[in-house]
Amino acid sequence: MHLVRDLLDKQLIDVNWQKMGRVDGLLMEARPGTQPHIATICVGGTVLTRRLPGFVGRWSTAVLRRFGPRHGAPFRIPWSRVLSVDAMIRVDVDSDSSDAMASSRWVRDRIIDRIPGAS
């Protein structure tokens, strides 16, 4: 498997076949005596903004740290939860009850539901 080609930036699908963001970053783990391996998939937060070059990256990361949900901390999925890697990556997470959908829920409850005719 090729980390950047086959994993990074791919669509994540949760256990209920719902979209739940993209693979915005990957955390590797290397311990003495073992091969380095992927430990965690990161979704959203400063993991994404840090990929932008120069001052744009630094500035947007600082903004997310200060004002973002969970101070810009990404949602983490342990590699052991990965079910399949294909054109999309399916993971054993129920995104609706997890922090991955926190901003989506916030928009739904605070904005969409207040518009007449929403439900």
């Binding site: 719902q18 993209r22 979704v43 989506s104 928009v107 539901d113 439900s119």
Partner: peptide, 22 residues
Amino acid sequence: LGWRWGQDEEPRKVPRFVLVYT
């Protein structure tokens, strides 16, 4: 960004998609 989207979905099922055009 990998959000849920679709003009055929109910607005509250795709809140961030609806937010963008709003």
